[in-house]
Every structure is written in C-alpha cells, then in structure tokens.
Simulated assay, not measured.
Amino acid sequence: MPGATLHQVCAFLNVGQTFVGTQNVPQNQGSAKDEAWKVNVRIQGCNLEQGYLCGSMEALNVQSTESSVVTFWEGEIVDNKNHTFFTGQWNATKDNDLKHWAKFASFAPIMAEVERDGGLSVDLANYDHMFMRWKEQFFVNVNPDCGLTIAGFYYVCFSRRDGTIQGFYYDPHSTPFQKLELKPALEGQQGHSLGIYQFR
C-alpha cells in the first residue's frame, strides 16, 4: 500500500530521529586491521517533495583526533524528479555511480533499468528502499585541519521497512568503499544520543 509506505518513510526520517552504527575504513593489505568508527546520525530536516534532507553526523573513536568529530551534511533523495541515480558532480562519473550503487543488494533488481535509461522507468516511490547521496558540508566542532576530509560524499541505501541504512563513501583521494552501517535508535536510549546543534 503506497500510503503505508509513505507513513513508514516519514516515521524513520522525522526531524530528530537518530541512527547509530559504524563506519568501517579498510586498511591496506598487510597493515593493521580495518579501522571502525562508531557513528551517530541525527536528521535535522527532511522535505520528501523536494528530495532533500539534512542532518549531523558524529564519528567517535577516530584515531586522528582526541574528540568526537561532528559534521553537518545535506542529502539528495533519488526520486527521478529532483535527483537521479547519476550524481553529475563531486568528481563522480556514471561509472563511479554504477559501481557504488551496485554494492547494495537492493539495487540489483533495478540495475538494468538504470543502465538503460538512468532508472527513469522505475517506480521509486513504492520501492522497498530509498537511494540517497549525503554530502558533508562543514565540520561543527573541530577545525578543518583536523586530519580528516569531507571532500567526498556517501552513496546511501535506506530501508523503508526497518529504517536501516547502508552507505559507501566516495572520494577519489580517500580509502575506497568505506562502509557506513546504521540502524534507527530509540530516543533516550543511553549511549546513543547526539547533541542538538543549531546551524545558521
């Protein structure tokens, strides 16, 4: 039922909803084990009609800094009205797009259509998953010279059914295929709170 699907989407993408999980940063072969950051995300704004959302992301236990790192990001929802599967910016080619979208199992059933016509024939409004791009805009609580980069962006797959999120970070100058895995957190659950930041 389309109505139920929309209700589920809005329930998980409400302003104030938090998600918790990890970002896995693969290391070079023969070096130390992969680095895994704890990550908290809070939705700060969402407009489904305009295919837009934004929020804050907090990365904990990042080796290059003593404190947590909070960034503000803005997102594009792939809806074939406001945004398509092809990024067209941030140094991403169509080949980059397809390689990253293909890493999501839920993308496999529509990959042929995306390769054929950009996915314009797919009924994304009633698809079980939403595809997005999240682009970090600025650091909130640390200096830009903290040793981390926000030059890239995340390819994101969001489950309408349970609110889980998978993402892959793309930046040609960073470690490829850093994997983001998040699940919705219950408000008030200890250890999973992310401070409210006001952005002007």
Rank of each mutant, 00 (worst) to 15 (best):
K81I: 14
G152L: 08
T65F: 12
W101M: 01
A105P: 15
N143D: 08
N96F: 05
V15S: 09
V69C: 06
V78R: 02
D117P: 01
F131D: 01
E35Y: 10
E113P: 02
Q63A: 14
N143M: 09
K81S: 14
V62E: 00
E115P: 00
W101F: 03
D123K: 05
S68A: 12
D95V: 10
Q27I: 12
S31K: 09
I150C: 06
C54R: 13
Y154I: 10
H83L: 07
F86A: 01
E115R: 03
N24H: 10
Q89P: 04
W134F: 15
L148V: 11
K103E: 05
N40A: 02
F19G: 05
A102C: 07
D117C: 08
G51A: 10
V15N: 10
Q50M: 08
F12T: 03
M132I: 07
V78Y: 03
K99P: 08
T65V: 14
H83D: 05
G119P: 01
G16C: 09
F72G: 03
V142A: 15
Q27V: 07
Q8D: 13
L13M: 13
E66F: 12
D145A: 13
Q23M: 11
A92G: 05
S121Q: 10
C54T: 15
A92R: 00
A36Q: 05
N82C: 02
C54E: 11
Q27L: 15
C10K: 14
E66A: 12
T93C: 08
L98F: 03
C46H: 06
L120V: 10
S106T: 06
L13Q: 07
V15K: 07
T149E: 08
I77E: 04
W134A: 06
V140Y: 06
Q137A: 15
M130K: 06
H129R: 08
T93V: 01
I110H: 02
N126L: 00
N126D: 04
Q63L: 14
T71M: 14
L148P: 02
K94C: 10
D79Q: 05
T71N: 13
L120T: 10
Q137G: 09
L124N: 00
F72R: 03
N80C: 09
S56F: 13
L148E: 00
V78I: 14
C146A: 07
P109S: 00
E136M: 10
P109W: 04
N47R: 08
G55T: 13
V140R: 04
F138W: 11
V122N: 01
L48N: 04
C54H: 14
I43D: 00
